[in-house]
């Protein structure tokens, strides 16, 4: 009994130890690659909470990436430690998301998706216009970070927190109610679920995760301007990675972010212009052929093959 639990946890422990030693042993290139992957994982999990679980498909979570980035940059410029700056960035984004959520989450379906896209463009335009705060299109330069290690470890911690948080979310009554909103918001409300509150909390948690990642990455690249704060490519990739792996699942974002993240890094180096095209094609194929994503489809496939499914996925509330 104890043994089997240990056996199940062992691979995770090994993976974690491996990830922990990467920045101390591997080359700078490999560490940077892993840092990118961890960022993708974090962002995909962040998106998954509002869009995968709650069903409010957002094409604009990158807005919070920029909010976190700018907060961190401005604070770091004023002498605050970057880690504190990133956490404050998360806090600012979380509070902002509560306010924005009050209005944006009244929109449904395509309106919400397009509205979030518009909101992101608004943020880009504002970042360019509010020169006193953001230094406009010139951007803010930060002292270059001399070592990758703290940035890497922070991102690892953030990714782990997002994953573990999602594991708990998936089994919690809170998560169940988010899924109920996704399935049928009116029915959920008729069962006594205060849907507005649940949606805003999910939106805010998602914003916090994305924003902290934005802060950390801004410190890492030591620079921020309106284009790098709200990168359109990141906006796309976090959606695609989560959808590829399986939105609204625990492991989908991990699978999607690591596999597509690796492809992105490889393609990015060789065909910097084309990788987003290839991403688009992958997304098309996924939607047409396995709209639920890789993880649930693979699960179904294994079950049909008659393999014993060890994990009893009783998401039942304890």
């Amino acid at each position: 009994m104890k043994n089997s639990k240990f056996l199940r946890l062992a691979p995770w422990v090994v993976a974690l130890v491996a990830l922990l030693v990467v920045p101390f042993t591997a080359s700078g290139y490999i560490t940077a690659l892993f840092l990118s992957l961890l960022m993708y994982v974090t962002l995909a999990y962040g998106w998954n909470i509002i869009s995968g679980y709650t069903g409010y498909v957002s094409f604009g979570q990158v807005a919070f990436f920029g909010v976190g980035g700018y907060t961190c940059a401005i604070l770091a410029k004023g002498g605050v430690h970057w880690l504190v700056g990133s956490l404050v960035g998360g806090l600012v984004a979380g509070l902002l998301a509560i306010l924005l959520g009050l209005v944006m989450l009244r929109l449904k379906g395509a309106y919400f998706a397009v509205g979030m896209l518009g909101l992101t463009q608004l943020f880009v335009a504002l970042a360019g216009a509010l020169k006193r705060v953001t230094n406009g299109s010139t951007g803010i330069f930060l002292p270059p970070s001399l070592t990758l290690v703290p940035v890497y470890l922070t991102m690892l911690g953030l990714a782990l927190a997002a994953i573990i948080g999602t594991i708990f979310l998936h089994r919690s009554a809170f998560g169940l109610r988010l899924m109920a909103i996704r399935e049928d918001e009116e029915a959920a409300e008729s069962l006594g679920i205060h849907t507005t509150v649940y949606k805003i909390i999910a939106f805010s948690i998602s914003a916090v995760i994305v924003a902290i990642a934005g802060g950390v990455m801004t410190w890492y690249v030591s620079f921020i301007d309106p284009q790098s704060a709200f990168p359109a490519s990141l906006n796309l990739t976090m959606v695609i990675m989560a959808v590829f792996g399986g939105p609204g699942t625990v492991w989908g974002p991990l699978v999607g972010a690591t596999s597509l993240g690796l492809i992105a890094e490889l393609l990015w180096a060789r065909y910097p212009g084309l990788y987003l095209v290839i991403y688009g094609i992958i997304l098309l194929l996924i939607i047409l052929y396995i709209p639920r994503g890789v993880v649930p489809s693979l699960g179904d496939f294994l079950r049909r093959r008659g393999e014993p499914v060890r994990k009893r996925r009783s998401g039942a509330v304890a």
Binding site: V57, F59, G109, A110, A113, L236, V239, I240, V243, L276, V277, Y279, G280, I281, L283, L284, I287, L288
Partner: peptide
């Protein structure tokens, strides 16, 4: 929506 998002990309 996601499909046309992909087409757009």
């Amino acid at each position: 929506l996601l499909l046309l998002f992909a087409v757009s990309m």
